[in-house]
Simulated assay, not measured.
Amino acid sequence: MPVDLSGRVYVVGSVPVLHPEAQTLNEMLEGWRNQQLCRNLDADTVAGRARLVERFIEATNEFPWTWTPSMVEEFFSDLRSVKRRKQSTVRGYQNALRMFCSYVSDPDYGWDRVCEQRFGTHPAQVFFEWNTASHVQDNEQSPAKRAFTKQELQDFFDHADDRVALVAASARKGWLPAYRDATMFKVAYSYGLRFNELRHLQTVDFSRNAHAGEFGRHGVVQVRYGKAKKGSPPKRRGVLTVFTWTPEIITDWLAHGQACMSAGLDLFPSERGALVAENTLLRRFRRYCRDLELPDGLDLHSLRRSYATHLIEDGWDAKFVQDQMGHDHASTTSLYTCVSSDYRVSTLRRALDSTITSALSFDQESS
């Protein structure tokens, strides 16, 4: 039974099919795929949602036209209580399955007529407000997640450099990937980058900043694969270099690292010439954290949190930090900042001293 490019059934065949349940499911998934692609959603997103539908069918052993709310409750109770999935993960799964139910139960797409003809029933929406997780606050990240302190970050970078020197001195393979990863950690912090933004950087993305000539040709980096909004391409932004040591790190890597791994434009190629996978960098990150016995709560994204936090602590303007991070709203940037106690105390002290000074000046003028 063909479906058009917008996901609508346009021919209802009268010839009996050999395996109607499996064929109808495949046609539903194909139609849903077409409907989502029409909305300009990414192909990987579409494929992931289809796999989730198949996973739900496997768990319930029921096809979409026989789903009930009780199946929803049973499936997600297992995810929460047994598999310990995060709140945001559960909500994401529920949203995807809710969208699938909305598609197959919408009369405009014709699946109700198909299912009535073949099975004597029709699909219905089984995901409601009362049996799904709600999104009631902006920040749902784990409370354990945090930024590095400046000392922790320095220790982490030093340890990464030491590991490169140790592997190189032992004449073993692996010093080049270790050097690449150490540089990636530093560049991620230097510009407050997400991992996907970092891995897509190319040598041609850097340019001079006419107002900060001391940074040379690495005064600005064009981030071309920023976090996209729904149905939109990756968001671009320019990030200014703020640390004096950053250009030296990049220049050294280009001369002694990147040139040995690839003749292409990618700044951080893998050993096979492709882009670095997140798990590759994450494994090394976790190993270094264990070596240093750093407390829990640090992950790759902590480098981005640290960038925002440290700039605010050092007195940079909040609007500047917001623009550097690529946030549309200041409230989003505030979620990234984990300002230290020392900064809070010094800020409070400055405010109190200013208040006292003003009061004394007023008393002197009055007398």
Rank of each mutant, 00 (worst) to 15 (best):
M1E: 07
P2H: 07
S6Y: 09
V9F: 01
V11G: 06
V11S: 11
V15N: 13
H19K: 13
M28C: 04
R33Q: 07
Q35T: 00
Q36K: 15
L37Y: 03
C38V: 12
C38E: 12
N40D: 08
N40G: 02
L41Q: 08
L41W: 02
D42K: 13
A43H: 06
A43T: 11
D44H: 12
V46D: 07
G48N: 13
L52F: 04
I57E: 04
A59D: 07
E62G: 00
P69D: 10
S77D: 14
L79G: 00
R80A: 14
S81F: 10
V82Q: 08
K83Q: 14
S88K: 15
R98K: 15
D106Y: 08
Y109P: 05
E116C: 09
R118K: 14
R118W: 10
R118M: 10
G120M: 14
G120I: 12
T121P: 04
P123S: 08
A124I: 10
A124P: 00
Q125R: 12
Q125S: 04
E129Q: 12
N131I: 13
A133C: 06
S134T: 09
H135K: 15
V136Q: 06
Q137P: 02
E140P: 02
S142V: 06
P143K: 12
A144F: 03
R146Q: 05
H159F: 03
D161R: 11
A168E: 02
A171G: 02
G174W: 04
P177F: 05
P177C: 11
R180P: 05
A182K: 09
F185D: 00
A188N: 02
S190F: 02
F195V: 06
R208K: 08
G213F: 09
H218K: 12
H218G: 02
V220A: 01
V223E: 04
R224T: 05
A228F: 02
K230N: 04
G231D: 03
S232L: 09
R237W: 06
L240F: 12
F243W: 10
T246I: 09
I250V: 15
A259W: 09
D266P: 06
P269Y: 09
S270N: 14
E271P: 02
A274Y: 07
E278Y: 13
L282Q: 15
F285G: 02
R286S: 09
R287L: 11
Y288A: 11
L292K: 08
L294R: 03
P295E: 11
D296W: 04
H301D: 05
H301I: 02
S302R: 01
Y307N: 10
L311P: 00
A318H: 01
A318F: 06
A318R: 05
D328M: 08
H329W: 04
S331C: 05
L335R: 13
Y336M: 02
C338D: 05
L348V: 01
R350C: 02
R350S: 12
L352M: 11
A359T: 09
L360S: 14
Q364Y: 10
E365F: 08
